[in-house]
Design a protein around this nucleic acid. Structure first.
Length: 699
DNA sequence: ACTAATGTCCTTTTT
DNA sequence: GGACATTAGT
């Protein structure tokens, strides 16, 4: 979380704050002149509900940051503002911008409550845990942990035998999560969103019941629980008034991507006053798989009567040619509330649509365009390659690595999801919450001769020892692990003795390193990762906040961690479209713009799903400031074992209709020179006998 | 009781 | 190429 230390919690009547404040001089508010009239209207709105419909690139971040600054300049104490954003990064950026504007009023970034719904829930629940029957040292399960738990119970209930073909654990969790977040009945969710598992309703119910029971027993919360418990607290009117009273204003970004539970939380958090600002764009709603619903933004004026609506339409990001293409794409949406975007940047190149013979040529083509713009002075960091699914960049990554072009990838598998990091964190989680069986499971599994049966006996033993992690030393486990358990007990003794967090991580690393070397083929990189973890830990004073932060606001790029030591480096951005939300680049390359990739063939079942893929495409296009390239390979190779060299032909993404194409420069990239041709040019004498050299290494 | 090897099915987006 | 159940081996 951004603001350390909880402010005192007490009921606080806060109506009419603005009216009672002394007016400030015009001089202090001179910065408002930099805003356009609509932005200024939003920023200087007094109290009461405000809905800002902000199209892509219309200065949404600036407006929200300015509003925070404005409210503070009007005398609202920063710690009585709550800014809910989609990511931690977004909150940080807005608060540092706001801080820059009202610098004379002191630091605000550390004082404003800012972060995601989930992180804020975590923070509030540490105080209000008792109310919902939790102890405050609860640990948070990330998606992987939650899936593991689901998998365990799935097995326990005898649902896992092959002939049953019961949905896999990740699907079970997805169904559960969707049901919880949408505040809907299981049958409706199954029918509408998971028709292929609808036959398992009678088995899923007891599975979910067990899942809920077990989480409570282990004193752990999953992501959904964070929201659910927050909502639950707010259903008590006294508590709702108390929590609501902590804040004079609440501001929510990306409101189109919030779900039903989040809307209920927002309503509950405004029982004392209705000073609430939400910002969003229904044309950019792309999280319905997480139960987000555009209804939240559409129904906001009914939910908060007297809402003032401000619409931002002038785009400051992109050139008119880019916007023309983007507008033409979103024009295909069935229903839409935001208007077409316009910009006074009339010039610039038309977006290009490039057909490549195959994937390899797509990679080469992207790279050569990137380098050409780089030569013209556009740094790599100001260029981004976007794609629908994380693995779509796989071959490009290989090619970039081969040419030693640095890149950071956003989305997909993250640092924290790698096994060695999860293992290391599991030690700390056990120390923090010894009832967290999932963490115990990971830790104990590392020792020789320990499998599921031993773990389960060990857990029973721990329960007898009133969950003192140090007592693992006296557990009579398999003889092979005897010595290891004794050392593990000593490790827990050490890290429970009030060591600083980085020192704790260091002890864990020392303990765990030999296991890394035994478990993995290339341990060096993984050990380096553990050292990075130590770096991260140095910013934390308590183990609890370190763990919670890592689960809730994980570093979200492959390069974020390595980034610190060589900050000046330049790198190309690779990102899923989802992770690109809210970002902008001078040049954007949308790759794999072929049907089946975009829209994903898993999302073409219903009109609503296709509609969301359309919005996703729109989001991708509107990230570009000046240079926009859409690429698709004509031919794909199948990687099937039986069919060694099979291939198929793709079709252009269906959203690039004739009308859209008319706004673009169309071209076809030439095929790459076949490798066979290169080979024949090499004279026999210069061929390297690799096989011989490989043998020679061992002679 | 645990590990390693084998076979089969599915393969998205994220807090 | 990964996840997961099953089977054979230590």
């Amino acid at each position: 979380m951004l603001a350390p230390g909880l402010p005192e919690v007490e009921a606080h009547p806060s109506h009419g704050i603005l009216a009672t404040l002394t007016p400030v001089s015009d001089h202090d508010l001179g910065w408002l002149d930099d805003l356009n009239p609509s932005q200024r209207e939003a920023v200087t709105h007094g109290g009461g509900p405000l809905l800002v419909i902000a199209g892509a690139g219309t200065g949404k971040t600036r407006t929200l940051a300015s509003r925070v600054a404005y409210l503070i300049s009007q005398g609202i104490p920063p710690d009585r503002l709550l800014l809910l954003t989609f990511t931690r990064r977004a909150a940080e950026e807005m608060l540092s911008r706001a801080g820059g504007v009202v610098r004379h009023l002191g630091p605000i970034r550390e004082r404003v409550w800012g972060g995601t719904f989930h992180a804020t829930a975590n923070r509030l629940l540490r105080t209000y845990a008792a109310v919902v029957g939790l102890s405050p040292e609860f640990t948070v399960l990330d998606q992987g942990d939650a899936e593991s738990l689901m998998g365990l119970l799935r097995h326990d209930l005898g649902l896992s035998s092959r002939d049953k073909r019961f949905p896999r654990k990740s699907t079970c969790l997805a169904v559960y999560s969707r049901t919880v977040n949408g505040s809907e009945g299981l049958s409706e969710v199954l029918e509408r969103c998971f028709p292929w598992v609808a036959g398992w309703e009678e088995e899923l119910k007891p599975l979910f019941r067990k899942y809920v029971e077990r989480k409570q027993k282990l004193n752990v919360l999953d992501f959904d629980d964070l929201l659910l418990y927050w909502k639950e607290i707010l259903s008590h009117s006294d508590l709702a008034r108390q929590l609501s009273g902590m804040f004079d204003h609440i501001l929510v970004d990306e409101y189109q991507d919030t779900n039903r539970v989040q809307a209920l939380i927002l309503r509950g958090m405004r029982t004392g006053n209705d000073n609430v600002t939400v910002v969003g764009d229904d044309a950019q709603s792309v999280y319905s798989f997480r139960a987000a619903t555009v209804r939240n933004i559409l129904d906001f004026p009914q939910e908060f009567p007297g809402t003032r609506i401000v619409t931002l339409e002038e785009n400051y990001r992109s050139t008119m040619p880019v916007l023309t293409t983007a507008n033409e794409v979103i024009a295909q949406a069935r229903e839409r509330y935001t208007k077409n975007l316009w910009s006074n940047r009339a010039g610039g190149p038309r977006p290009s649509l490039v057909t490549c013979p195959d994937e390899a040529s797509q990679d080469v083509h992207v790279i050569s365009r990137v380098l050409a713009l780089y030569e013209q002075g556009i740094a790599l960091r100001r260029q981004a390659v976007l794609f629908r699914a994380a693995h779509h960049s796989a071959s490009l990554e290989v090619e970039l690595a081969r040419r030693e072009i640095p890149f950071h990838k956003y989305g997909g598998l993250r640092f924290l999801e790698t096994a060695h990091i999860k293992d290391a964190l599991a030690f700390l989680r056990v120390a923090e919450n010894p009832r967290d069986e999932l963490a115990w499971f990971r830790v104990l599994h590392l020792f020789d001769g320990v499998g599921p049966a031993t773990v389960s006996r060990a857990l029973a033993y721990m329960a007898e020892q009133i969950y003192d992690p140090r007592s693992i030393a006296s557990f009579p486990g398999p003889s092979a692990a005897h010595d290891g358990f004794a050392r593990l007990g000593r490790l827990f003794t050490e890290i429970s003795e009030g060591l600083p967090v980085p020192a704790q991580v260091e002890r864990v690393r020392r303990f765990y390193e030999p296991h890394v070397e035994k478990l993995y083929d290339y341990p060096r990189a993984r050990v380096r990762d553990l050292e990075s973890l130590e770096q991260i830990a140095s910013g934390y004073r308590s183990r609890r906040s370190f763990l919670a932060d890592l689960q809730l606001d994980p570093p979200n790029s492959t390069g974020d961690l390595a980034g610190a030591p060589h900050k000046d480096d330049d790198w190309l951005v690779l990102s899923t479209i989802h992770s690109a939300k809210g970002c902008e680049w001078d040049a954007v390359y949308l790759i794999h713009a072929a049907d089946g990739f975009l829209p994903s063939d898993l999302s073409t079942g219903s009109r609503d799903e296709i509609e969301e893929e359309l919005r996703l495409t729109y989001v991708a296009l509107t990230r570009a400031k000046t240079h926009l390239t859409v690429i698709w390979p004509l031919r794909y190779h199948y990687r099937r074992r039986e069919l060694a060299d099979a291939h198929g032909y793709a079709q252009l993404c269906r959203f690039f209709t004739e009308d859209v194409r008319a706004t673009m420069e169309q071209s076809a990239a030439p095929p790459l020179q076949p490798v066979a041709d290169l080979e024949t040019k090499i004279e026999g004498d210069h061929r390297l006998d690799l096989a011989q050299r490989a043998r020679a290494m061992w002679e």
